[in-house]
């Protein structure tokens, strides 16, 4: 087994909502250019862990964290770090898509504009490029200036993918990004994600085991706020080291 090149890393991460502890001493590595899937039963802290990776945890009322999250070795919680820069480095796919109240084109152009990534002349080209990468271009090229809310929910999720990619992130975070979608749309998204791991590090939260088996290169199994087991997917799925992982994988809870 070759050595893992970590892209993201957490060190002794604890997270609390008020007085309840949601994450307990989480130390994990997330390998570069692979799909890492965080699995576990509801309430195990998967989503909280994901929120720690782009500092979304700070938006929660009463939330507090201890420990470090390192992105390329730099702690994203250190006071000198600009939170917008951290978030720009990771595109987020939420459980259900939230198109911004503007046109399809402007949704993708939004991040490009606020970060001034392309000149005006290149903007159109860039928007087209990311819509193509997200596999949406052919469906929307004739109505780029229609409101994004007119798209189907599956199309909206691909639009959100394009919008996230347009800020040129290094990491894609997905919080059960296919759970609100129909099977065909979900397949679309999965296909895109597999293509995208060539260029991006992908971290997904999922409670669908079959999806995890299909997509994961690296798996983190969590239970009650702790990481029980983490490792390459084939190892965790075929030869789990912990009794609890084995029980979860065989559908006991």
């Amino acid at each position: 087994m070759s050595e893992i090149i970590p892209h993201l890393e957490t060190q002794n991460l604890n997270a609390y909502y008020g007085s309840t502890q949601a994450l307990e001493d989480v130390s994990i590595v997330i390998p570069r250019n692979q799909i890492t899937m965080i699995i576990g039963p509801s309430g195990c802290g998967k989503t909280t862990l994901l929120k720690c990776l782009n500092r979304f945890i700070e938006l929660e009322e009463n939330a507090r964290i201890e420990g470090k999250v390192l992105l390329d070795g730099e702690n994203i919680y250190s006071p000198s770090v600009d939170v917008t820069e951290v978030r720009k480095k990771s595109g987020l796919l939420a459980q259900r898509p939230y198109p911004l109240p503007m046109s399809i084109f402007d949704n993708v152009a939004y991040g490009i504009r606020i970060h001034r990534l392309h000149s005006r002349g290149q903007l159109h080209q860039a928007v087209q490029h990311y819509l193509q990468v997200a596999g949406l271009w052919e469906e929307v090229k004739d109505r780029l200036h229609a409101p994004a809310s007119q798209l189907s929910i599956g199309q909206q999720q691909r639009l959100c993918l394009a919008r996230g990619l347009a800020v040129e992130p290094e990491i894609i975070l997905g919080d059960e990004p296919t759970s609100a979608l129909d099977p065909i749309s979900a397949q679309h998204i999965e296909k895109r994600l597999i293509e995208l791991k060539q260029r991006y590090t992908i971290v997904l939260v999922s409670h669908i085991l079959r999806q995890a088996r299909r997509l994961a290169d690296y798996v983190i199994f969590m239970y009650m706020g702790r990481v029980v087991e983490a490792g390459p997917a084939h190892q965790v799925f075929n030869n789990p080291q912990h009794e609890r992982t084995r029980a979860y994988l065989s559908g006991e809870f």
Partner: peptide, 11 residues
């Protein structure tokens, strides 16, 4: 979620 969508892009 709408606010998060925008914040996630580094706005």
């Amino acid at each position: 979620g709408l606010r998060q969508a925008s914040l996630a892009l580094g706005a």
